[in-house]
Structure formats: structure tokens, C-alpha cells
């Protein structure tokens, strides 16, 4: 177990380093990152001064080392547009995105897992076919379209829910459903195939032979085993939900980090954009790591390295 853990920590650190490297070089793709940060219409002298002030005139490797050193101290730099530390701007918005992602995960798990179990247990029934179509549709749904359709139906026509912004807990409902729909389909598909895999095993036959009904066998034995792949996917999907929040937050004017990223691109506040990308990617790496740990905790075979 200890060996396994050390290996996983090493992998997570390597992936984090890779993320930092990619973002560093992407920021420099245009040639001169200073041009991303200056206000429009700045003179050549102002640009040169800013370049020197931000250290962009140093050799690339020196810049990279300084960038890493700053990030390790959680220093994301100072926003030149808002004249405030980037870290503060980011942390102010994080709770909104966490609430949205949690809502979406709740929708996705709450609907996806029962739907997946039903699809597996009632395999050849018409209900399973119907659900399968529903899942396939959910998978192909662009979140910005489903979001706008929800606004049209529940916000504009029925007037049950607020159309956008933050106005009490009810405003979280539509963004969560829009964001959760795609993840819900992933959960349903994964749960279906995990349960189907387990249903073919000998222990299910043994349980049935002892007189358990299919329902009891599934509830007592199958779900516990089928949970292993589903837990892994759940952790991975948290990262996807945070990334998907960029679009959903724009649709619903939800003041999370996704909306912050888009607003910062428009106001040319690139250090904030960089911070959002780094934050989401590092959370994604951390989720991957936790998924591996959870996997090992649930399934003893992985612990002993069999």
C-alpha cells in the first residue's frame, strides 16, 4: 500500500508540473506575453517598462523558475486591470462554482445511477431502451442550448425560477440541471456496464440459488462491486464539471470562476485567466489522485498489487 501511495503521489506531482509547464508556454505562444497584459493603446515605452517590471525580458528559463517559485508560494501575481492580487479575485468566486458543481454532481448521481441500474437490470425491456435513448440524447446536449431552453421554459414562460444571476437557492436549480445533464449520461452508462459485468458473475447465481430475488441480489451484492468503477468516474467528472462551468456560468450569469475567466479575457486580464486554468487543472489532477486512492481503499486487490 505504501509503495502504491508513493507511486501515485509521484504521478500526481509530475502531472501538476506538466500542467504548469503547458500553461506557461501557452501564455507565451503569441511571442510576447506583455502584449496580453497592457491596456490597449499603450505606447512602446510603456510596454517596454511593463515588460521589464514583469520580468518578461529575462531568459525563458529564468522566467519559468520564477513562475514556479511564485506559484509554490500561491502567488498568482497582481491583476493589472483590477489592481488587486489575483488570488483574492479568484477565491472570491470559487464558492459559487463549488456550489454549482455540487448541485450538478447531485443531479448527475441522483438521476444517473438509478437510471444506469434500471437499464442493466431490465436489459431487454422497453423501459431500458427508452432510458438508453434519453441517455444518448443527454450525452449530445450542448449545455448552452439546454441551459437556454430551461430559461425559456421555467424562467420566461412558466416564471417558476429566476432566469439568471444569484437570487436565493432557487437560482442554482437550472444551472445545476444544465451542467449535470452530460455527466448524468456518463454515470448512467458507466453504472449500466458495471452492473451488467457483475450480473454475469458466479456469486450472483449463488445468491439467486440461495433464494434471493434479483432485486435483493443487486441491492446486497452487485452494487457494492459495481461501485468501484463508478467512484473512479465520479472523481474524474468533478474536473469536467468545473471546466463545463465556463459555459454554463456564462449562460446563467452565475458569478463563478468560469464567468470570471471569460470576463477576464474580455478585459484582457490574462493573469486571472491563467489562474483559473491552473486552479481547475490542479483540482482535476487532485481528483484523479483521490480517485486512485478511493479505488485502492474499496478494492483490496489493487492494494496488494495483484
Amino acid at each position: 500500500m505504501r509503495h502504491h501511495l508513493a507511486g501515485r503521489i509521484g504521478q500526481a506531482l509530475l502531472a501538476s508540473f506538466g500542467v504548469l509547464t503547458i500553461v506557461f508556454f501557452v501564455m507565451r505562444l503569441s511571442g510576447d506575453p506583455t502584449l496580453l497584459l497592457v491596456p490597449e493603446g499603450a505606447s512602446a515605452a510603456q510596454i517596454a517598462e511593463l515588460r521589464h517590471q514583469l520580468g518578461f525580458d529575462r531568459p525563458l528559463m529564468v522566467q519559468f523558475a520564477a513562475y514556479l517559485a511564485d506559484l509554490i508560494r500561491l502567488d498568482f501575481g497582481e491583476s493589472l486591470v483590477q489592481r488587486a492580487p489575483v488570488l483574492g479575485i479568484l477565491t472570491e468566486r470559487i464558492p459559487y462554482t463549488v456550489a454549482l458543481a455540487a448541485g450538478a454532481l447531485f443531479v448527475a448521481l441522483g438521476v444517473g445511477i438509478p437510471v444506469g441500474i434500471t437499464m442493466a437490470v431490465m436489459r431487454d425491456h422497453w423501459i431500458a431502451r427508452l432510458l438508453q435513448t434519453f441517455v444518448l440524447a443527454g450525452q449530445s446536449l450542448p449545455t448552452f442550448w439546454s441551459g437556454i431552453l430551461l430559461i425559456l421554459l421555467f424562467g420566461v414562460t412558466l416564471r417558476w425560477l429566476p432566469t439568471s444571476g444569484v437570487d436565493g437557492p432557487l437560482s442554482l436549480v437550472m444551472p445545476s440541471v444544465a451542467l449535470g445533464a452530460v455527466t448524468m449520461s456518463t454515470f448512467a452508462r458507466m453504472t449500466r456496464s458495471a452492473v451488467l459485468d457483475e450480473l454475469g458473475r458466479d456469486y450472483v447465481n449463488a445468491a439467486r440459488a440461495r433464494g434471493l430475488s434479483l432485486r435483493e441480489a443487486v441491492a446486497r451484492h452487485v452494487l457494492r462491486n459495481a461501485a468501484i468503477p463508478v467512484v473512479t468516474i465520479a472523481a474524474l467528472e468533478i474536473g469536467n464539471l468545473l471546466a463545463g462551468a465556463v459555459i454554463v456560468e456564462t449562460v446563467f450569469a452565475w458569478p463563478g470562476i468560469g464567468q470570471l475567466a471569460i470576463q477576464s479575457i474580455q478585459s484582457r486580464d490574462f493573469l486571472v485567466v491563467q489562474a483559473v486554468v491552473l486552479f481547475v487543472s490542479l483540482v482535476y489532477v487532485a481528483c484523479n489522485f483521490l480517485a486512485d486512492l478511493a479505488y485502492a481503499a474499496i478494492d483490496p486487490r489493487i492494494r496488494s498489487g495483484e
Binding site: V23, V26, M27, L29, I262, F270, Q274, V280, S281
Partner: peptide, 24 residues
């Protein structure tokens, strides 16, 4: 294959957003 793992640990839509924002 390590680069593949790294690329997959940045959500693609965010990487695309950042890159398009930088390049125009």
C-alpha cells in the same frame, strides 16, 4: 505517453479557451 497523461489532465475546453484567448 507522459505528455498524453499531462494533456489529459487539463480540461480540453479550458486549454482551448486559454489558447484562443492568447492567439486571438
Amino acid at each position: 505517453m507522459r505528455s498524453v497523461d499531462t494533456m489529459l489532465s487539463i480540461p480540453a475546453i479550458l486549454l482551448a479557451v486559454l489558447t484562443v484567448a492568447v492567439l486571438g
